[in-house]
Amino acid sequence: MKSGLKAVWILLGCLVVLGLGLGIRALLLRGNITVKGGMDERLVYAAVDEFDFSTSSDVVEADESVPRTPPVAVESIEPGLDLKRGSFLTDEIMVQLDELVAEETIGGIWVGASRIVHGDTRAFVRICMALDGSPERLMFGGPIRLDYPGGSSEAFFVHNDVPDERRAACEVLEFVGVVPENDRSGWRFTMENVMFTIPDEGTECDVYQKRAEADKRLQDAGVTVACSHSEGVTSLEIASKSAGLSMTEARKLMEDAAYGRYRGPWVYNLPVEVGLVRPGD
């Protein structure tokens, strides 16, 4: 009996020492681990469906007085080209965008919008969104479009902003390629949807499951959700549903809950101010 106990102690001691070795090994390797599955590759361009801007007639010589401004002609600029000039947002424009001049609540979602500030080929609008009684933070949802005299733009930079006094999430959208026929009338901002913010990497399934479990629409429909995450892609599947609900309907309910999709549209005719942009900043 006594010798048996001793053998157990020795075995435990061995395991502890082995574990200690493994632990030290892991600590030593922290920050110096052999990478498995890296995808560094020299490229072979067999099929590339990209635009080639190198021959664009829109490209002209840059003004030397603004050295960081890329060469573009303001009278005609494709949004994709204009994106490459970077953001023009300045502190002065942020001040101009501070006041919300339009608001509407649809389906429990309040969305406020500032006036539009236009300068160069850019139009800025600040939008704030809130869902009463929900701790979730909202963000813009596509499609979003800015109509202006003579054209429209659906390409924009997104600048996260501090919450306003309603504790709403606010964003400044910087539309690119905006070259209106005149500056003052006929500007309309349209946002079809809003959604909850995207979960941080590695937390997707936790967040989506919690949202699904808290969603009354899903509960009423008897839908439960299974989530898996692998290699940068999150998969949501229907684990169970009531018999009377089609898979398409169940899937739509699931995605609405998990991604926090709420439909509008929110359409605002907004006043326009001229703003001093700083191209190349």
Binding site: L22, I24, R30, G31, I33, E231
Partner: peptide, 23 residues
């Protein structure tokens, strides 16, 4: 224990260059 190879699958154990190729 020191010699047993450990395959890193967690980004928690990487920094800088060693994160290349990990999610």
């Amino acid at each position: 224990g020191l010699m047993i190879p450990i395959e890193n699958v967690f980004a928690a154990m990487c920094s800088g260059d060693n994160c290349t190729g990990l999610y």
